[in-house]
């Protein structure tokens, strides 16, 4: 039996699908800022460098707030923000990657995380290291769905790809993560988008 991953959701891939009445009562700036923590967390694990991540979030926020007029019709602000961040990330990925420092992300995150137990930390460190080895297309999907809790359709909207592509990337990403965590993050992955 074919399975519809989003049986109750519209197949529309656009996030600009109508005005939200509630939004007009609140400051758009405040509404945007509510999502900053999610954007920062996602960006950190996406780009692997806190400074690059904050630059990315900063650029995203500035762009969105500066264009506040045009996104008043956005229904799902969070998806819109993540979409903007994704676009900036894709545009500047090569530049940021070139300037990335040599400090492993798991070391950086170790300083940021609340101190976990030793056993927990070993597992988390392996997972963080493995995430950085994933192709970015797979890493994005794994993080959007697994870290930020987006539905498959929301993730598809953010990335501008069909839901089937999201699920395919999710499947490949999770399987690659499983192998990396099992066999070590030094395992080379064949890049499949």
């Amino acid at each position: 039996m074919p399975w519809d991953p989003n049986p109750d959701e519209s197949p529309s891939r656009s996030v600009q699908s109508g005005a939200s009445p509630a939004r007009t009562r609140r400051s758009v700036d405040e509404e945007v800022l509510e999502h900053v923590s999610g954007l920062r967390r996602y960006a950190l694990l996406l780009v692997g460098d806190p400074h690059d991540a904050d630059d990315l979030v900063q650029e995203c926020l500035v762009r969105v707030i500066a264009q506040a007029r045009s996104w008043r019709q956005v229904n799902d602000l969070r998806a819109y923000l993540f979409t903007t961040l994704h676009n900036i990330f894709v545009d500047g990925h090569r530049r940021r990657h070139k300037h990335r420092g040599d400090v492993p992300i798991e070391t950086v995150i170790a300083d940021l995380l609340a101190p976990p137990r030793q056993q927990d930390w070993v597992e988390l460190r392996d997972l963080i290291a493995a995430l950085q080895v994933l192709p970015k297309e797979q890493r994005e999907v794994v993080l959007l769905v697994g870290l930020e809790g987006l539905s498959y359709l929301e993730a598809a909207n953010v990335l501008g790809v069909p839901v089937g592509t999201v699920m395919s990337r999710l499947s490949r990403g999770r399987e690659a993560l499983r192998r990396l965590v099992t066999h070590g993050a030094t395992t080379r992955l064949r890049v499949v988008k």
């Binding site: 923590s37 967390r41 694990l45 995380l113 609340a114 976990p116 988390l124 997972l127």
Partner: peptide
């Protein structure tokens, strides 16, 4: 990922 998310709350 849930533990990372929870651990990054302070950072975020």
């Amino acid at each position: 990922l849930a533990r990372i998310r929870a651990g990054l709350d302070r950072y975020a």
